[in-house]
Design a protein around this nucleic acid. Structure first.
Lengths: 236, 236
DNA sequence: AAAATACAACTTGTATACATTTATATTTCG
DNA sequence: CGAAATATAAATGTATACAAGTTGTATTTT
């Protein structure tokens, strides 16, 4: 069997990604090379390469002569998030409808099945990860190398923000989650029909739902930051 | 004097970036670790870390057990470029106008001075790099971590595509280049005035000029690929 | 002669040892 | 007792040695 370094490297990548997306590793958390190196049976050399790759994707921040950190999520960046997300999501879903392959559509359906199962009986992390996977597939469908870097960066923080409201038994949020699931179904249908206009419209709807949830759950602690609209003034 | 490994690492990064942007290293070209390691007085370990970072930024493609390559630029990706660029450029310049600091505005003016000097008496590479620098500063101004990954990715290929028409004595292109320079001035003015609407408008104009040049110089060899408009059909 | 295989040279990937830098604890002196 | 300075420990960065994989060439086989 091949449980060699190459596969352990992939496992480490996956482990770190999942841990960061689900907030098990909090934004700003320090990563210990020696500890991870020991835990995954990898020397520091390949481990540091994984760090650099994840840093490039937006999961980590690297500072010379200091430990790697999980990328921060301040409310300043949240403002940027609200501004970029609707634009990029719309473009991605439009392109997904135009370019998706049959195999990718199957992948998307699988992801949606997993998402529904997670809504029924999964943990908050399961739900966030399944949702992340769904949108990740739409990114693959778009196939646009120029939009994907930003889209994937957005997905990281979307998952992390979402972790706050994807927890089970979030009361009245259940209906919102089932609505999100319905929107996923509609998105799949639009993509399968190659209906890019509808896909873009659904992206907008889906984003609005997400935005409402975020404002509902995150805003009470940070009313000072205006959201949902571009800032009207003010540099440093 | 500090001519230690840390600075050599930065030099390597810069050297590779410039070489790739100016097409001295062609898309698809193989990079020899041993040779670069020798040339820059770096061992392979830090060199490979630079590779991974540049790969994350879109300069290189890494394939396991094979040599690193300069990222490809097929006409397929050019279609994606035409679709993403106007959207992202507009958003970036709008945000630049809203968020630019005084220091950044000075940087932008410096970049524009350098660009003008390159138009007068610089090589094609000088011009492309100066133009790249100008737009890079606008990216810094925007400060939006979610848009920057795609913006920077676009700038890489914009510089590489532009290298074909930034060469000196490109005949009737001189007027277009001076027009581009005028647009840069207007962009600076809009940013300084915090006029985000005008900045967005100028982004559109600037992109249209760029697009025309690209179509003029690149298209004759690739008439089969429709450009300037989103594709109307067709997955794989 | 063409295809397949085996071998050798070379390239990439990983582990380990060493150097440098940062953080912590202790000592020293005011 | 407190603050600065220094010593000590720990972590990060780099270099080198070794292992694993790839590619090209030569030999063998059909």
């Amino acid at each position: 069997m091949k449980d060699d370094a190459k596969s352990r490297k992939g496992e480490l990548r996956e482990h770190l990604k999942v841990s960061i997306l689900t907030l098990r590793l909090r934004p700003g958390a320090d990563l210990d090379e020696a500890h991870l190196s020991d835990a995954f049976g990898l020397s520091r050399t390949p481990l540091r390469e994984v760090f650099r790759q994840l840093a490039g994707e937006g999961y980590l921040d690297l500072r010379t002569n200091r430990s790697a950190r999980v990328s921060e999520m301040s409310y300043t960046t949240l403002r940027d998030f609200f501004l970029a997300a609707p634009m990029v999501y719309g473009a991605i879903l439009r392109l997904a409808a135009l370019n998706a392959t049959a195999v990718q559509i199957d992948d998307l359906k699988d992801a949606q099945q997993t998402f529904k199962a997670a809504l029924r009986s999964g943990s908050g992390a399961d739900r966030a990860l399944a949702n992340n996977r769904f949108h990740d597939v739409t990114g693959e469908m778009s196939g646009n190398v120029y939009l994907l870097p930003s889209f994937n960066r957005l997905l990281i923080d979307h998952a992390r923000i979402g972790m706050t409201f994807y927890r089970p038994q979030a009361g009245k949020m259940s209906q919102n989650l089932s609505l999100a699931s319905q929107q996923h179904d509609a998105i799949i249908a639009a993509i399968e029909a190659r209906d890019d206009a509808t896909a873009a419209k659904l992206a907008e709807d889906h984003w609005n739902l997400s935005r409402d949830q975020i404002e509902l759950f995150v805003m009470p602690d940070a009313l000072d930051v205006p959201m949902g609209a571009p800032p009207l003034s003010k540099p440093a």
